[in-house]
């Protein structure tokens, strides 16, 4: 465990927490893509199937449980508790465009052809594209609430910190996980345009709105 990894996990946790705070405080999930949140719940579910079969550490178990809980509570907030505020007309990204290639690729490129490994691979590939319905929604409406942009910033920062963690692990342990690294790079690239807008607009006190 290195500093990049810890900061990455904390950034991920903060992102999910910020999203829940936004929904809970405003009693509204306006501007949030329910589709992205369903994909994240699916990512954690398929990745953490080893929760009961493969004990790694207290930290690992606790974080997995918290991530799963946050993901499911968020989906519950969007589709049940505050569904009247859910901006369904703008959440129109076609999920089959992500799911079909991701399912196909997880069968083609994986470490071992077993159900848990294929599902783990599926979760890694899916995570790299899961934010696209959310980014699509923002580009469609042309704006995002400031707290939503903080959520996106920490979610992107988490994967960028994991990239630093993988470089560190390669240097110190000679360890690398090709599937995670390639997907992590792709995932981080999707946030670059947003990072630019975040730094040039949100951090200068302006609302994120697209021309």
């Amino acid at each position: 465990m290195n500093v990049f990894r810890i900061l990455g996990d904390l950034s991920h946790l903060l992102a999910m927490f910020l999203l829940l705070v936004k929904i809970w405080r405003s009693k509204s999930c306006a501007g949030i893509s329910g589709k992205s949140q369903i994909l994240f719940a699916l990512v954690f579910t398929t990745r953490y199937l080893d929760l009961f079969s493969n004990f790694i550490s207290i930290y690992n178990t606790v974080m997995k449980v918290v991530f799963l809980l946050c993901a499911y509570v968020t989906v519950y907030m969007i589709y049940w508790k505050f569904r009247k505020t859910f901006d369904i007309e703008n959440d129109t990204f076609r999920l089959e465009f992500l799911l079909v290639p991701v399912i196909g690729l997880s069968f083609l490129v994986n470490y071992s052809y077993t159900p848990t490994e294929v599902l783990w691979t599926f979760s890694i590939y899916l995570e790299s594209v899961a934010i696209l319905p959310q980014l699509f929604m923002i580009s469609k409406t042309g704006e995002a609430e400031t707290i939503t942009t903080h959520y996106l910033f920490f979610l992107g920062l988490y994967r960028a910190l994991y990239l630093a963690n993988w470089i560190w692990r390669y240097q110190t342990e000679n360890f690398y996980d090709q599937i995670s690294v390639v997907s992590g790079v792709v995932q981080t690239i999707f946030y670059c345009d947003f990072f630019y807008l975040y730094v040039t607009k949100v951090l200068k006190g302006k609302k994120l709105s697209l021309p």
């Binding site: 996990d9 991530f67 000679n174 090709q178």
Partner: peptide, 10 residues
């Protein structure tokens, strides 16, 4: 060179 997946990462 190691080429395996990281079971300890989240």
């Amino acid at each position: 060179h190691a080429l395996h997946r990281s079971h300890d990462e989240l």
